[in-house]
């Protein structure tokens, strides 16, 4: 579904993505983690070409991203994206936020689009908030509307860029619940997150990145509990507060 082939990217002199090789198959849920500045978000944003790459190739659903003839709007219509800061349209109600793209891109009529949007709002549990403006919604509600907005385009792939990082702790679960149910339905998902619980529950593979490189890839228990690379071990112990060193287990 998504294939990175020797991808490189520079911001001026800063080498943000170093020789990325990664293949993501249909229905897979990938969690990308790593310290800040590791290039996780950049990697995610290259998939729908919000960031372009300087070298290598990315193939998404058979479309070659470095080919200038690739129809970007068609590509992006197939890829949903959820942002850290929600990025809902503040001048439109929750319902209109969801119906805008289906109407303008897919050419749906007002009635059809509204019906679809209401179904999605029901799914994220926000039917009663359909006429609220984003400022009137809590962070968790905004993010759920944002997910519904992406789903309205019936994408084949969903990208999540730290979807819970800007939320208060008590609001995180309502967003994660939606994401878990989405994963169970077999959506192809690429998620940048620090939510270890989510990763352990639904991730098929975890990708650990540092300094623009993919350091390690593996199933969640391998990466979180028994990482091979010292950099991964270092990060897991400092960020997730998990005793990853054998000694602590043995001492007990």
């Amino acid at each position: 579904m998504i294939k990175f082939i020797a991808t490189n990217k520079w911001f001026h002199n800063h080498h943000v993505l170093r020789n990325i090789n990664l293949e993501i198959s249909k229905g897979e849920v990938i969690v990308i983690c790593g310290p800040s500045g590791a290039g996780k978000s950049t990697l995610l944003r290259t998939i729908n070409k919000l960031e372009s790459i300087d070298d290598g190739e990315i193939i998404v659903d058979g479309m070659y991203l470095s080919d200038p003839k690739t129809d970007l709007t068609a590509l992006r219509a197939e890829i949903g994206m959820v942002f850290q800061h929600f990025n809902l349209y503040p001048h439109k109600t929750a319902l209109k936020n969801i119906t805008l793209a289906p109407r303008k891109v897919r050419g749906l009529g007002k009635k059809q689009a509204t019906e679809k949007a209401l179904k999605l709002l029901e799914r994220v549990g926000l039917t009663h908030r359909r006429d609220a403006f984003p400022v009137q919604l809590s962070g968790g509600e905004q993010q759920r509307v944002a997910i519904a907005r992406s789903l309205a385009m019936e994408p084949k792939i969903m990208l999540f860029d730290e979807p819970t990082s800007a939320l208060d702790p008590e609001l995180i679960n309502e967003v994660l619940d939606v994401m878990v149910s989405l994963a169970k339905e077999g959506m192809t998902m690429v998620v940048v997150t620090h939510e270890i619980g989510f990763a352990q529950k639904v991730a098929d593979r975890v990708v650990f990145m540092d300094d623009g490189e993919i350091i390690e890839t593996g199933i969640p228990p391998d990466i979180f509990v028994n990482p091979q690379h010292p950099r991964t071990r270092n990060f897991m112990s400092s960020v997730f507060h998990i005793p990853v060193f054998g000694e602590t287990e043995e001492e007990k």
Binding site: T73, A74, R76, E78, N87, H91, L100, A101, K104, M153
Partner: peptide, 29 residues
């Protein structure tokens, strides 16, 4: 905010539609 354009583009809207329905209404306000 820059995120508004990104959000609009990532749903598959063309640049023209993104400007017309997302950016300009906010800018005029």
């Amino acid at each position: 905010p820059k995120g508004q354009l990104e959000a609009a583009l990532s749903t598959g809207m063309s640049r023209y539609n993104a400007m017309r329905y997302v950016i300009l209404p906010q800018a005029f306000k």
